[in-house]
């Protein structure tokens, strides 16, 4: 089970109303390589990996939910008091008609989240390589959002999230090395 902590992993400061940027950030909220996909992918894979690497999947999955909450905070604040006209101008007219000011798990193009974004092959190496790829794709997505954003405060938080992808990618690479050490172990006994 999980216990809620009434704080963010990293401070998120939003100084300007900017629904267009909120729409771009949605890519990491409900997109194919976003934090929801990451959290669900790792949380689900942890059941069928060797015990030695369960902790990596469990703890990174948990951290991804805290990243999701940071992105939600950005989207919420960037759109909170925006008028329907402002939302429409930002390309969120269709979003407003369907969801009002609510957040939704969708990508920057408004495509709703789907579990086909994630994989579970039941083969530890196949799954860990998928996870490494997912981290690198998320890192790249943060790069493109940072490139297109003029908001220094938001970019500060996005840079933190991008760096976390680096660290997670390394931990998954290490998990592969840990499993490689298991080669021929049965013969030793």
């Amino acid at each position: 089970m999980w216990v809620y902590e009434k704080k963010l992993l990293y401070p998120v400061e939003v100084k300007e109303c900017n629904p267009k940027l909120a729409r771009y950030i949605a890519e990491q909220y409900g997109g194919a390589d976003g934090e929801l996909a990451a959290a669900l992918r790792y949380m689900n894979q942890r059941y069928t990996v060797p015990d030695k690497v369960i902790g990596v999947l469990n703890d990174i999955a948990t951290e991804e939910f805290s990243h999701l909450e940071m992105l939600a905070t950005m989207i919420y604040k960037l759109t909170k008091d925006a008028t329907p006209e402002q939302l429409e101008e930002a390309g969120l007219g269709a979003h407003y008609v369907n969801h009002g000011h609510a957040l939704f798990y969708e990508n920057a193009g408004g495509v709703p989240f789907t579990t086909t974004y994630i994989q579970a092959k039941g083969d530890p190496i196949a799954d860990l390589y998928e996870d490494i790829a997912a981290e690198e794709k998320a890192r790249a997505t943060y790069q493109w959002i940072i490139d297109i954003s003029d908001d220094a405060w938001i970019n500060d938080s996005l840079k933190f999230l991008r760096e976390r992808e680096n660290v997670h990618s390394l931990r998954f690479r290490e998990a592969v090395e840990v499993l490689k050490d298991e080669r021929d172990r049965k013969k030793i006994f």
């Binding site: 990293y10 490139d147 970019n155 840079k159 933190f160 991008r162 760096e163 976390r164 680096n166």
Partner: peptide
């Protein structure tokens, strides 16, 4: 560490916005 996103400087590559591209 919190500022950079990792406890270890060796894991940090500090991406920032590329101007002009």
């Amino acid at each position: 560490a919190l500022q950079h996103g990792s406890l270890w400087p060796a894991l940090v590559d500090g991406y920032s916005k590329r101007e002009g591209i």
